[in-house]
Design a protein around this nucleic acid. Structure first.
Lengths: 173, 173
DNA sequence: GACGATAATGAGCCGGGACTCAGGTTGTAA
DNA sequence: TTACAACCTGAGTCCCGGCTCATTATCGTC
């Protein structure tokens, strides 16, 4: 791939992430092109359909999340991960507005990474042993979705997470 | 207002609720008209812009929620409300995909209704006294959003809510 | 520097969906 | 029953946004 093509591809991806994060998946491709400083045709050269662009940034975002999860460990790793994600969502730094996009295998990798954090937290008796991965993921995605829409302030983020964390730690169900 | 106009208005509202619940706010007005058994012009006669239609069904939905909350009381009222809403969301029976729609005062009434349930639950020592309305609403909207996207099965609904309820009851924060 | 391959450009095509309006239809009050 | 206002109809307008492609520019190589 030619050097300029590579540079443009990266610019488009960055612009798309920003635009879609700010305006949702409904934002126009032309605006992405404008922000990237590129003509529309160039965007479509790299990503033949809009969905391809959406999928590409979702995959990059997901990969970044998995990396973030990978950097954590220990009793508090899971809680830290929750906190980071909710904070990002509240600042609209992330999207995850999966519009029917097929993320397939990538999503499984996230499950795996979170599963590891859950296992470590349980081994340290920081969360209840009966807690399953499916409900942890459900809580995580719910909170992100909520923070994304609501634009929660940091105080609200903290108080809301405290309730959920208490439920994950607590001895009663 | 003429009798047929009234009838058509109701049909349009019902159709819109169904269509938008199934396909999101992006669904076409024409499909709403088709399902309502009415010409497209009739829809625009009653609701000059698509947003007016969206707003109308959101308000009706919200009013229904407030009514549901009003019918509950006692120590478990709040928990029952959560459970009902999440279940509805999981079945896509509700939308709340507020697309920048201004619901203004109506939203305040929901806060009030949930606030009452929270107060009663706290009076019965069924939830921690320090819990505020803002985080309860944050949890409620998050869980609904999550259930809506994820299409949670009843088992997952139950397990996820159990964690949150434990956090609301538990003595530690 | 010349040259072919690769990439970028952007005016324009096209489909879809919000919205309109001239003309036909129906409810209703006198 | 009549008369009119309110209402309904649906083909058509307009615009927006995804996507194309002939033309032009740029890169990498000899």
């Amino acid at each position: 791939m030619r050097a300029d093509a590579q540079r443009n591809r990266a610019r488009i991806l960055d612009a798309a992430e920003q635009v879609f994060a700010a305006e949702g998946a409904g934002a126009s491709t032309e605006e992405v092109a404008r922000l990237a400083g590129v003509a529309i045709g160039t965007v479509f050269r790299h990503f033949p359909a809009k969905d391809d662009l959406l999928t590409a940034i979702m995959k990059r975002l997901l990969a970044r999340l998995i990396e973030q999860a990978g950097a954590l460990s220990g009793a508090d790793g899971l809680f830290t991960f929750f906190t980071e994600l909710v904070s990002q969502a509240a600042q609209q730094r992330t999207v995850i507005t999966l519009t029917g996009v097929d993320l397939g295998a990538a999503m499984g990798a996230l499950d795996e990474a979170v599963g590891r954090l859950l296992g470590e937290a349980q081994a340290a008796h920081a969360v209840r042993a009966e807690l399953g991965l499916s409900e942890v993921m459900a809580l995580l995605t719910s909170l992100c979705a909520g923070a994304l829409r609501g634009g929660w302030g940091s105080a609200l983020q903290h108080r809301t997470l405290a309730v959920v964390f208490a439920g994950m730690k607590g001895t009663r169900g």
